[in-house]
Each structure stands twice: as structure tokens, then as C-alpha cells.
Design a protein around this nucleic acid. Sequence first.
DNA 1: GGCAATTATGTAAACCTTTACATGATGCAT
DNA 2: ATGCATCATGTAAAGGTTTACATAATTGCC
Lengths: 340, 340
Amino acid sequence: MSAKPATIEDVALIAGVSIATVSRALNEPAKVADSTRRKVLEAVAKTGYTTNAMARNLRMRKSNMILILAPDVGDPNFSNILVGLETEASKRGYGILIGNTQNDPARETDYLRFISSNQADGIIVLTGHLPFGLVQSGATKSLPPMVAVNEPVLNADIPFVGVDNLEGARIAVDHLISQGHREIAFIGQSPGRAVANLRERGYREALTRAGLEIDPRFVLEANGTTESGRGAVERMFVRDQLPSAFFCVNDATALGVIIALTARGYDLPRDFSVMGFDDISYASFVTPSLTTMKQPRLEIGEASMELLLALLEGEPIKNRHVLLRADLILRNSVALYRSY
Amino acid sequence: MSAKPATIEDVALIAGVSIATVSRALNEPAKVADSTRRKVLEAVAKTGYTTNAMARNLRMRKSNMILILAPDVGDPNFSNILVGLETEASKRGYGILIGNTQNDPARETDYLRFISSNQADGIIVLTGHLPFGLVQSGATKSLPPMVAVNEPVLNADIPFVGVDNLEGARIAVDHLISQGHREIAFIGQSPGRAVANLRERGYREALTRAGLEIDPRFVLEANGTTESGRGAVERMFVRDQLPSAFFCVNDATALGVIIALTARGYDLPRDFSVMGFDDISYASFVTPSLTTMKQPRLEIGEASMELLLALLEGEPIKNRHVLLRADLILRNSVALYRSY
DNA sequence: GGCAATTATGTAAACCTTTACATGATGCAT
DNA sequence: ATGCATCATGTAAAGGTTTACATAATTGCC
């Protein structure tokens, strides 16, 4: 009808009550008499009133909005987590705000303005570190409500949700062992990276438990990219000894390994077995399709948002650190070991 | 320092000026004397003041926030568009709010609350239709600022940004023709869908221009999924005649075609050429890697956000409809035609 | 030096809610 | 009938800005 949207005052006028009563009728129906509540609801319907969130947020110092800080929004792994985050948030009446930081300190700092001005109530951090603008403001400064996802935040006791990398790696390597492999390489050692370190540790523990030696020549550095996986294989070929199976720190690396081996004329999985980790979207389209550990991305998204909202609304928390299980996905890049 | 963040009043007090002057010093520096501006900035630095966006938004009836309505946030195609959207928005000081609608009318309606309560200033629509809550509110009702992306909105003159499907399809089919193919099938006819229709039209025009007949038996329905591509090929095999090349409405369909042909024992691209459209992330990992038309997703995201913000801020608009060119990506699923 | 025009600053309203507190009405027990 | 507790509603403040309008200070000009 009118150009300006209806305010609570318009409703109050039509219903013949005060604005306080309108507010109560809408937000705390129990506190208002049946008859007046009916009048109010009628007036609301007639005017098409919808409460102005800006005004409410200002008054309540709460926006029902969650800021999501991700280093790379374009990462296909991220999009599934995002679905989980969105689902859970929207279920509880929260909206989500996307911040693509690209690991740029300036952008991280910039996005904090949403927090400092109450435009967002909490943060989901996928970057593996505190947003830059927070770090410099001193240790004792109280942090906004925050949950770290996938990558734990260093040097800070931030609630965390992620996959159980240690156990997942153990399961992966156990599977290779169960297929008869004894000489298993780990591709993706990466000193600074927490996730990579856990997966390497899982690899070592699985071998040790099975009573197998860990050959240092079979543990190769790689930074998680396809190119680095390919490079690692090439480095290995300049030496004499080769494993029968490769456990890779992630699927991208595994893809590089597959490409390198295929390019050298090997037939996979007959000649070598390759196992990845993550189950990224194209793992099933590679040839051979990739046997890997699936990250429960949807669940990770949901669980982390659930944790953050519980924190925010002061609900009791069971665990501040949630580890979800990775599942073994059997495809065609791993086969029974056979000697020639 | 203090628990409560500094307000404009604190700054005014320290600087020894009124709050109006502080506001002006920050927002319209030209309107304030150099000396006072310096004092204000000092006070701002001392207090760590940052303007409360809620209060500003309330006063200005503007949130600097854009709502993005997508049917499936998890779609890998979407994530690259999202990067473009985010980049452009953040460059201009806007934030983005994600709404995953899953084509659920209730969710679409629900997300409109952000618009009606001034929590978002405009909408980017990727669903191909008006958000459900808007449709029912009558035709003459003024729509919020809105730009449609990828899928034009039916029955409404909404500004649009997308890829030039017609021209892209022509280029794709021209390429097949240039490789010597004369019998080219179109997989993906889909009556209701605007995008599919344009690609089919491009296919027809390319053939006609080249003086080739369009064999109705070579135009098959498919709904854009991998499964439907596979099914279309199977249907084709119950007939006698086969094309030498397949132009598929999108990469997912092409993937199905490749799977079906490979399963029947054909060697691609020797026996058949297959061309897709989209260049989805795993197009390069399929065997054979997929020759296709690349959608400039990043640019689409940027251009659509640019258009929406120009609309929003009353800047002059060159075109309300932007078509971006799709690029031919040569890989290994298309080869020269050869008869046996 | 006096007047007008310009410039810099201040005052207060407006943006729209929620909610503490006050007020008035109703019911119940004594 | 009186007093007290309970319940429903109203009044007004608070939340932190921006900005139209008013006022004070400065400049320019003759």
C-alpha cells in the first residue's frame, strides 16, 4: 500500500493499544490477554507489519547473524561445509555472512567490523588462526564467541569441530595393510601443518601396531597440492626402492600421484595402490577412481554451527572439541598386493 | 579497556566537540575544519571507536548487505560465482548473506524477511524465479532491487547476468563441424528450461548455417543430470542410426554420455566425440578429459554484483542484461572425424 | 569598520524497537 | 469492606547513529 513499511506504532494505533503491548503480543504472547492479542494480530495482518530487524538488533545488541571466515570460499571442500552451516543456522533463526579472507590480514581485520558493531554475534573460523585484527589487540582482551572448523586455532583454546584425522589415517593405512601391502609410503609430510601431522602420525601408528618398520625413505614431503604429489613420486623414482602402496595426505595429492604413475606407464591399481583422504567431489571421476577417507562435511558444518549457537545462547555444552569419524570409501585405486 | 565499546559520544567528549561534528568528521571530512578533524581522529584512535553499524543502518534505512538466494549452495558451480560475488561486494563495502533455498517455497519466503526488515538492501537470485513470497504479493507491488544470475527470471523484467548460451552452443557445435563431424547429436532437450532451450537453439543454428540437416532422431531429451545423459545414449542405441559426435547440454550430461559409451566398449574419442558445456571442476579429470565450453563464473559473479550495486546506488546503468562469452576449452573428448 | 555571505559547529529530532518501572484493574482471603 | 497479591497494560527511556535546522564564527568586500 503505502511507500513506507508499517511500524509497530501503526499497528498499535489500529489495534488500539500501546506499542509495548504490540511488542509483547508478538514476542511474549503469554504476557498479554487473549482478546488483545487477537486485536494485535489482526492489525498486524492488515498492515503487513514485519518487525524492523535493525531497530531490534540495535536495542538488543544482537543480530542473529554469524560470520563465517574462510580462506577460500571457492574451495569445493568448503561448499559442503557451508551447506551444513547454513542448514543449522537457518533452522535456529540465524543468518550467515560470508567472509572470504584469502589469508589476507587486511581482509580478516576488515571483516571483524561486523563483530565489533554487533552486526554478527559469533564467528566460524576456517582459517586455522585467529582473525588478524584480534591477535594484535592483546591476549587478555575477551574474544568474541568463536568456533574453529577443520583447522584448530593455534595457541588459543578455541572450541573446535573437525574430522578425526589421526583415527582416519589409521583406518586408511589399516586398509592398505589388510590388502597385503607391507611397503606403504606416506606422501604429504608437512612440518608446520597440524592436519598433515596428524595424518602422518596415524600412518606411523598403524604401521607400528601392525609390527611393520617405517622406512624413512617412504615418507615424503608434499604441500597438499596435486603438483606436489606428482613431484614427490618423481623424487622417489630417482631412488631405487619403491613401495607397493601410497597413502596420501589428501585427495589432491593422491591425484598427483596417480597422474605421475600413469604417465610413467604403470597400470593402476595393478602396479600400485593409491589411497587419498577427504573424498573431494571428483575423487570418483579420476581413473582409477580414488579409494579414500570421506570427510563428513555436512555434519561438520552442522555440528560446528550447533556448537557456536549453544555457546552463544548459553546452553550447556557437552564437548568443546568435537571429532567426527572419517569413513572409508572403497573405489578402484587400491587392490590386493601381489608380487611379480 | 572498558567492557562496553566506545560510542560516538565518548569520542565527542574527549575531542571536546559535539557528536554531530564527530559524525561529520568521519563521514564528510570536507565539512569540518582541519584542526577539529585532527582532534576527532585522535579521540577515535584513543578510544578505539568504531561506528555501530546497527545504529547507522537503522538511521539510514540501509544495511550494506546483499542477500544471495541460491537453490543449492553445495553445487560446485556455485562456489566460483560466490567468489566473484564476494570479491565485488566486499570491494564496495557490502557484506553478503547466503540463503540456501533448495527450491523450497517456505525457505524462499523466510529469507525475504531480511529484505522486509532492511537487513539486506538487494537480492541476487540464482533460482530462475522470483522468490516465492514476492510472487503472491501481487504484480504491481514494487520489487526490491534484484539481479538474476545464470537463469533469467520468468515473466518479469529483472536485470540479468549470465553466459551467452546461444553463442556458446554455436561455437561448440562449430568446433565439432570443424573437426569433420556431420552427424552431431544434441543431448539435453528440456522443454521448460530456458538455458537448455538456448543451447539447443545454438546447436540448431550452427548446423543450419553449415548447411547440415537436423535429424530429429539426433535430438534427445535429458534433464541435465549424469544419469539422464547415460539414459539418452541407451535410448539411442535401441535405434539403428548413430551420430559421430555428441553435443551435450552440460558437462554432467556429457559425463553420463561418456560413461555409457565407455561401458559399451567404445574407445573415446576414437569412436565418438563428446562435447560438454560449463567446464565444471572435474571436467579435466574424467577420462577422456572433457572438451567443453567454459563458463566465466568468476566474472559472472563480479558482473552481477556490480550491476546490483549500481542499481542500488542509483548509478547509471549501461546494460540491464549482460551476456558473457563462454570459451572453448580443448581437451581430449573431441577428435577428428574418421570413417571406418 | 560594517554588512553580507560563507563556513563551522551545535541542538535536537528521527530511525524503530524492547523493557524496566509505574499504574490501574481484578480477584481473593480475611 | 479492606488489604494484598496478581495480572494486563501503558509510559518513557535507552540503544547509537545521521542530518535538517539553527546559531555562532569567520571571511570577503566596499
